[in-house]
């Protein structure tokens, strides 16, 4: 996994609540057996005027000029501002894969759906929860300031605004450690293989029906 320490980048606003994973990456793209290449289909139904299918040449499709990420001022954005319950719906990891592939490194919003939140951390994408008033302020700043950028410092657990104000955020220490170091969860867990084996052996005796 790619490590995340400090990231500074252009901010784009996604100003709606309950953005679901079907909107982030529609199901027809889930037929892929690969982990990469989902970026061009991020928000496919909102982003293009035609209906997208896997294998299309996305460069030739008609873009929806009204969709926020298609506006020239947000081109190259790597931080996405979001509203309540972003990432709700399915467990598809294709959602963070698509966001990451598009170029996003951090998401800032009021709340994220549980499974999506979890999946982000596995892919070097940092979801940051901030109080509603601070998020609203960031939406206002982004709208008012072309080229609005933010700095996200995971080590210090702050989002730094261009005016120097630092917004503190919380993150689980364990997750933070993994992300800062780009650690592979599986490798970490397998260091405890003996403990897992002991647990399993006990369980086999206590509840043998679970091992049919």
């Amino acid at each position: 996994m790619r490590a995340f320490t400090v990231h500074e980048g252009l901010v784009a606003p996604m100003d709606r609540a309950n953005v679901d994973t079907d909107a982030i990456i529609p199901k027809q793209f889930l037929k892929s057996i690969k982990r990469s290449g989902f970026g061009p289909n991020l928000f496919d139904e909102w982003r293009y005027l035609d209906h997208g299918e896997p294998g299309m040449d996305n460069g030739r499709r008609p873009a929806n000029p009204d969709f926020v990420l298609n506006q020239p001022r947000y081109r190259g954005a790597s931080i996405l501002l979001t509203r309540d319950n972003f990432g709700c719906g399915s467990s598809r990891e294709h959602a963070p894969w698509a966001l990451e592939d598009y170029g996003f490194r951090a998401l800032i919003g009021t709340s994220f759906a549980d499974i999506f939140f979890n999946n982000c951390f596995k892919n070097g994408l940092l979801p940051i929860r901030l109080p509603a008033a601070e998020v609203q302020d960031l939406f206002d700043q982004t709208a008012a300031t072309p080229g609005y950028r933010l700095k996200v410092d995971l080590e210090a657990r702050v989002v730094v605004r261009p005016d120097g104000r630092a917004l503190a955020f919380e993150v689980d220490p364990f997750r933070r450690e993994c992300l800062l170091n780009g650690w592979d969860d599986i490798g970490l867990t397998l260091r405890h293989a003996d403990q897992i084996r002991d647990f399993e052996a006990r369980r086999r005796i206590e509840q043998p029906w679970l091992f049919a």
């Binding site: 982990r35 719906g89 399915s90 467990s91 598809r92 990891e93 963070p96 499974i115 979890n118 999946n119 596995k122 892919n123 969860d185 599986i186 867990t189 397998l190 293989a193 897992i196 399993e200």
Partner: peptide
Amino acid sequence: GDSHTSTHGAFACLAHGIGTSEVEHVLATQ
């Protein structure tokens, strides 16, 4: 690897959906 795994909680199971990285994690480590 499916959010509606919550269904199985009807049987007093701790059941929940996981992402693909976690599917791999469970395959490899249980």
